[in-house]
């Protein structure tokens, strides 16, 4: 392994790896490992990898190392797969603005093509979860009832039953899932970004992941039947509302009612 990783520094290593990856991909598919489909990026061209490498050196290498081997400031990216890059960069979490309890969502720093190039580069470093296929993101094929059940068992404790987000320890938090792209939801489950656990395909199958996404998109699209959602935060926001707006209106009426007109 050591010899291999040294050779990776060779400019052609990436291309060689990619070719190897392409060859192996088919085999991996056939093997259909019960863990994540550890496919290399079949869709990426050599030039994608090369462009990605440049972008990586310019934007990421400070923390993740020149060869993505990781430093004290950032983890190794070898084997994290294209899905990781697509999620972290595609949601604006990476590059990080500053070190903190967890990476925050920001405006995305790269365009779609650059994200793809970066993904291609990182995917070329070692087998890891790939960007999901469109078939598993198509909510018209999913079952929201089943997705809801899986969501409640596996996700709601952190992300809230209505996907409004929640707190974790020491400044970390599970974000709201409203408005998150289908692709990114899927990728998050596969890669387990930050402190989120990994939900690999043997835990929640790709079809089940699609059900979860279907559920999330359905409750997001339909809104609340009862009117404004008050943040879907549960009884706390309801209590606050009743003490401020509710009692406020009532008190205004009592003052009017007991005052003397001119």
């Amino acid at each position: 392994m050591k010899a291999l990783s040294q050779k990776r520094r060779h400019p052609l290593a990436a291309v060689a790896l990619l070719l190897m990856g392409l060859l192996v991909t088919g085999g991996l598919y056939a093997a259909a490992s019960s863990v994540n489909e550890a496919q290399a990026a079949s869709a990426y061209s050599a030039s994608d990898v090369e462009e990605g490498n440049k972008l990586f050196l310019a934007n990421c290498a400070t923390c993740h190392g020149m060869n993505a081997e990781g430093t004290d400031a950032g983890p190794s990216l070898i084997g994290v797969g294209a899905a990781s890059v697509d999620f972290q960069v595609g949601t604006g979490r990476m590059p990080m603005q500053m070190q903190g309890p967890q990476a925050q969502v920001k405006p995305v720093q790269f365009d779609d093509e650059q994200v793809q190039q970066l993904s291609a580069y990182v995917a070329s470093l070692g087998a890891g979860p790939a960007v999901p296929e469109a078939e598993y993101l198509d909510t018209s094929l999913g079952n929201s009832g089943q997705g809801g059940e899986i969501f409640r068992v596996n996700c709601a404790m952190c992300h809230n039953a209505a996907a409004a987000g929640g707190a974790l320890t020491r400044g970390k938090f599970a974000p709201s899932l409203e408005g998150v792209e289908e692709k990114h939801i899927y990728e998050a489950m596969v890669i387990g970004p930050q402190n989120m656990p990994v939900f690999n395909d043997s835990n929640i199958s790709p079809e089940d992941k699609r059900d979860v996404i279907t559920f999330l998109k359905e409750i997001e699209a339909q809104g609340s039947p009862g009117g404004a959602k008050l943040g879907s935060l549960g009884p706390v926001s309801e209590g606050l509302f009743v003490w401020t707006a509710g009692l406020g209106i009532i008190i205004a009426f009592t003052i009017w009612l007991t005052s003397r007109p001119s």
Binding site: S34, V35, V198, F199, N203
Partner: peptide, 21 residues
Amino acid sequence: TRDPSGTPIKASDVQIGSAFH
């Protein structure tokens, strides 16, 4: 077994960093 489906779990299914209910 997995909650709620009740399907058994192989040790090889569980990768580092994952959580099964």
